[in-house]
Design a binder for these strands. Structure first.
Lengths: 206, 206, 206, 206
DNA sequence: CATGAATGAGAATTCATTCAT
DNA sequence: AATGAATGAATTCTCATTCAT
């Protein structure tokens, strides 16, 4: 097989990196970007401060890679939906469902996800990442563009439309996460999907 | 008269508080939450660091009150629309227009506004949080509730609907602010309004 | 008078800078360049760590300016001799005497002086200062050149000659400083001067 | 035979020690005392960090023994000259020549040599110091003493004289090493020798 | 009241040293 | 014996906060 020959070292290396990124995720989720110190991340991961620097050049790299790793996971789940051939409306529904389900499973990631949008996160003004956020919007925009070409969606700026959908649905997820007893996921999936597709206007004439 | 007897001291006091909050706004807008130091805020306000502590207990209070003050301004503009009697659809359009116009005039506030949603900003884990954001959502929710009662909007959770609208429109504003040459405000007002009211679905049968 | 109008702030500022440089001098003299920490320097100066950064950008600047300040003092004493019109041989004697006397009074400076020559001092490879050391050598070289022109010294590379004299005499000073009971200064002045002028060779034919 | 029975282990041991000291020498020469880390020394020697500790108690011991080893090499070359029966003046000339030649061949050692004099190198205040330097001075002093006894050198403190000669010549070597195109070695040998023997004074009456 | 010099807790980062494999 | 991952003490530097003037 073409599988690269992974030595035991590589496995351990990857395991540590993974562990550290997960710890970072949890700490940022708990305390927020700025209050997540190397010490606390180290404690959370059960290693010493110095160890982190064996796997990441500095705090910035750790945070950035954690961002990327986490968003990549979300993206791969969403991409799985995007790539599946499906009528447009169903695709929207599935996307919303996937996103809600993802954050249902990864509550702690959400806070990280939020701080991704405004680039102020990593304290030094260093142009960290929200390119991933952009990419994600563009991917959705492409799907929307195709739906417009197919005559299923009225023609508007697909990029703006994508952002509207993403943020609108994010708002609902944020709300769910803050609720003690959120409604069933299916319910919110239906709500968001219907808002996106048909808006709020009551159509008695239907 | 019912006017509270405002001594000269009170006036000065209020003036200082105002000045400081405006300076804070500008610095956060420029540098981001985490990089906004007391020194820079003091410089921006033209006072010394120590003076800030005469009017605010600590950095957290300064930031929090600045948040509140800024959002209050936005709210009052939006409330002016909300309170004016108007058909529902027009009201939505006006709200979106007011919001887009506000951020067009107060570009610098936007960054602050963003960091308001997740309380991660203030570095110490002190739950600075965002009651104002909630209030704003609730006010919109009330309008939506009424529209449902009037049969103009199909019945859904008004709170969720409000959040969806707020964040969806925020996304468009954020996009506008990052663009070198954004389209005319009216264009985006129309886009957002139509999305909220009618969704994306093409209705050739209309 | 043309004295610049020194405000009280300037005086305090200069006093602090002076105090800090003196403390730095003492600590480096005691512990050596590399072991002189900001904390210890602060303690020695009777201020807190943070205070140092009010007057010096970073450790490198503190050390560099301390170097310059200290060497400047030595230079000014030597220059006083160099500028005084005097027969060449006497001038050499006076220079050696001034140098020995200076280090007799400022024993602690010596260690700093030594670490100036090899630029490795300031740990980061930053090309710190030994320009002062060069300047000093050149000044002596100029005097030697003149003595050669006057026919009092045989013609050799004046730069090399200067270095030879400086380091040779430094060796004697270093020895003096390590001795519990060094001989009278005059004695070593005489020794060094005679070595420079006449070498070691016994001249019975004189 | 009286040869100590050297087991294979002893040979390996000595080889390792030698290799490590050479690596240390190169790294210090390249980066300077303070910037020479155990990791870089290990890399240079082609072993792992841990290995160093099998042969040296700690960094200080490694550096100290490296000092000693390096100076010993220089000393043995100088001793070869010192032990050869030779008129005094020629011996001085040969010593200077040997020293200049040695540093010409071992440029990298020079930096180490310099930091030997002041024990500031080893960052922790541990008095690593420089007994070897003393020994070398004493050996020269003995030769000088003998020359005085023989009436070839005027009677002065032989120890001081030795230090003067050593440092004076070192200054010239340091200068040579910093020059892009230094003069021929013979030229500087002649300069230094003549300075030591006859001083700077022009003796037209000769 | 206002100031801004001084403070010191706390953050990131480095590196000599240890120890399980 | 050799390794090198892990450690954590030590270091530099920042910045919110205090307080004497």
């Amino acid at each position: 097989m073409a599988t690269p020959p992974r030595s035991k070292e590589d496995v351990v290396q990857e395991f540590r990196v993974q562990t550290l990124m997960e710890a970072t995720l949890r700490v940022i989720a708990r305390k927020g970007m700025a209050a997540a110190t190397m010490q606390e991340i180290a404690d959370e991961a059960g290693v010493s401060k110095g160890t982190i620097y064996l796997y990441f050049r500095d705090r910035d790299e750790l945070v950035e890679r954690t961002f990327e790793g986490a968003i990549a996971q979300l993206m791969s789940e969403l991409d799985a939906v995007l790539d599946r051939p499906m009528p447009f409306e169903e695709k929207i529904r599935e996307l919303i469902a996937a996103k809600i389900a993802f954050f249902g499973k990864n509550r702690e990631f959400f806070r990280l996800y939020l701080s991704m949008r405004s680039p102020e996160g990593t304290q030094r003004p260093k142009q960290t990442c929200h390119p991933q956020y952009r990419v994600r919007a563009q991917r959705l925009a492409a799907v929307l563009q195709k739906a417009m070409d197919d005559g299923e969606v009225r023609p508007v700026d697909p990029n703006r439309l994508a952002l509207f959908i993403i943020e609108g649905s994010t708002a609902i997820i944020l709300e769910r996460l803050s609720e003690k007893h959120p409604p069933a996921e299916a319910e919110d999936v239906e709500l968001v999907t219907s808002l996106i597709l048909g808006g709020v206007r009551k159509r008695s004439d239907r």
